[in-house]
């Protein structure tokens, strides 16, 4: 019998991408559960009973302070140790959009200094407005377990929808280490695969960074929304291209496969 892979999709007030995340994991042959942060805080659920942790997008706590800041503060206050154990155990953790912002606020990525210090921020878009569009991304998989289903240099397409997505490292050392260690696994490119400016890079991110993985390869944060493309009929240009696969699922299938193989 196939091993059941349990996925916790973590929410709080204002998280609003949990439904598509749930559907994505369901389509990727795993057993997702939408879990309110409260349940980890009051111990009615335990993090270590799950195999994969996903931070969906949205506007946790309204993002009225700074994107992801309130959710990260709540996590740090109550379940910091559990989460660090989960990560150090090597289990897959992924966040998209607001989830990426939370992971950065928690210091889980890029974590070039190994101490979970906050080394970067996702600042307001350079255009100074919310941007909803489709972007092209260049994949450099490194050892990122979520990117196992892709090849290096592959160009993929995903939707973005955010107003705070400009990746800004704390200092040039952090940026240097990110590049040196190849943690910038997803970068914005143009339709022809070149690194170009706006709107191909929709938010003005440093080095066109769209996604960052930790060195161990088990924590991935991305600004785009792979969880919204669990069906290829939700791509913006699907009426022009009839391909046979659903691009978003490759992220999640990789994680599920990883668990089945390793645990």
């Amino acid at each position: 019998m196939k091993r059941d892979v349990r996925v916790a999709i973590l929410t709080m007030e204002g998280t609003n991408n949990e439904e598509e995340a749930y559907q994505s994991f369901r389509h990727s042959d795993s057993s997702p559960e939408i879990v309110h942060l409260k349940k980890f805080e009051n111990r009615t659920r335990r993090l270590d009973s799950y195999d994969v942790l996903f931070f969906p997008g949205g506007f946790s706590a309204g993002d009225y302070v700074r994107a992801g800041a309130v959710m990260a503060a709540r996590i740090r206050a109550k379940i910091k140790r559990d989460l660090e154990n989960f990560v150090e155990d090597g289990r897959p953790v992924m966040g998209s959009c607001n989830g990426f912002q939370v992971l950065v606020e928690l210091g889980l990525i890029p974590d070039t200094g190994k101490s979970y210090a906050v080394e970067a921020a996702l600042a307001p878009n350079a255009s100074n407005r919310f941007e909803a569009r489709t972007v092209y991304l260049n994949v450099r998989r490194g050892n990122c377990l979520f990117l196992d289903g892709f090849s290096d240099g592959e160009i993929i397409k995903l939707p973005i929808a955010h107003s705070e997505g400009r990746f800004v490292p704390r200092d040039s050392d952090v940026l240097r280490r990110i590049v040196k260690e190849g943690l910038n696994v997803l970068t914005y490119v143009s339709g022809s695969g070149k690194e170009e400016g706006y709107p191909w890079n929709p938010n003005g991110s440093e080095h066109n960074i769209a996604g960052i993985c930790n060195r161990r390869g088990n924590v991935l944060g991305v600004m785009p929304h792979p969880e919204r493309i669990f069906s290829r009929f939700t791509e913006t240009d699907w009426t022009r291209e009839r391909r046979g696969y659903d691009i978003g699922n490759r992220f999640f299938e990789s994680a599920v496969r990883f668990i089945r193989e390793k645990y």
């Binding site: 609003n16 991408n17 439904e19 598509e20 559907q23 994505s24 997008g57 407005r129 919310f130 941007e131 909803a132 569009r133 939707p159 929808a161 929304h225 969880e227 919204r228 493309i229 669990f230 069906s231 009929f233 939700t234 699907w238 009426t239």
Partner: peptide
């Protein structure tokens, strides 16, 4: 229109 999220919920076909 690009300031409105039109893909959230993952069910937007067109």
């Amino acid at each position: 229109v690009r300031q409105y999220d039109h893909t959230v919920r993952g069910s937007t076909v067109i």
